[in-house]
Amino acid sequence: MPVEIPVEKWAGKVNEVKLGGNGRKSIVIGGETTLPFLKIDGAMPHRPAIAVEVDDVMPADWSPHLIAAWGDALEDPAVWAKKAAEYGADIIALTLDSAHPERGNTGAAEAKKTVEKVLAAVDLPVIIIGPDVAEKDNEVLIAASSVGRGQRLALGNCVDKNYRSVAAACIADGHVAIAKTPIDINLAKQLNILICDIGLAPDAILMDPTTGGLGYGIEYTYSVMERLRLAALIGDKMTSMPMICNVGEESWRQKEARATSGVPATWGDHQERALAWEGITAVSLLNSGADIVVLQHPRTIALIKDAISKLMA
């Protein structure tokens, strides 16, 4: 008996967003006319990209497995970025964590220096993430924006409190804004509308729907992403931005990945568990629509890179 496979025809398309260029390697993400990796309905013209997190200060409380994997590179963002590139990063996600009021409170001048250094060290596209304090984000992201003028960086996070400044910097210097909202489809859409209202082109916006790690709200993120992607495929232009997920940090900060002692024996080998934690979070969110996953462990980079290749095959 011949089985007739039901095919969905979607009217919408995810925006194609380019990062890098102008002497730097460039990458295009998005462009899907189907649900993630579902070849029967439409096309997925660009493979999802792997961004690797690089911090501007030595991470204070990282898992010993991450520290062991990166070694001395953690002390210098330029070295770290180079190493990340060797490990297979498509994008460097530079986090200006030292600008956090409690972790150094550095300002625009330091941010400029760091960004210059990292831009010089690697030729990959670069994402710059602020310390997640709206005011400081503005300060360092605007500084980073001018340094990277024309190199189409992605700047984040652009949230309801500071979206105007970050979007303005993106317009002025030709960058892409990462619009971050707290796991809510309507808030995500609203922020996209507001950013577009300011004048940033829709193809210069990425959405960060806020990542809940495995065991820590991943189901909320997963479903909001599926809904955002379905809305985009139905034809809603204001949800058609590609999505980025901060997988590494949200996996490795959890005690299941971080705690070295004092955990039940039933949890098994620490490193194996931690890698699975990051890997499963990444694969799940790729399946719900992530176009960029930000990872932390070198082994995960390799595994996810391979999984993406297989999913695209």
Binding site: N138, I142, S146, N162, R164, S165, A167, A168, A169, I171, A172, I198, G199
Partner: peptide, 10 residues
């Protein structure tokens, strides 16, 4: 540019 960003962000 610096003032422009402030004008855009209100």
């Amino acid at each position: 540019r610096s003032w422009g960003i402030q004008m855009v962000d209100g």
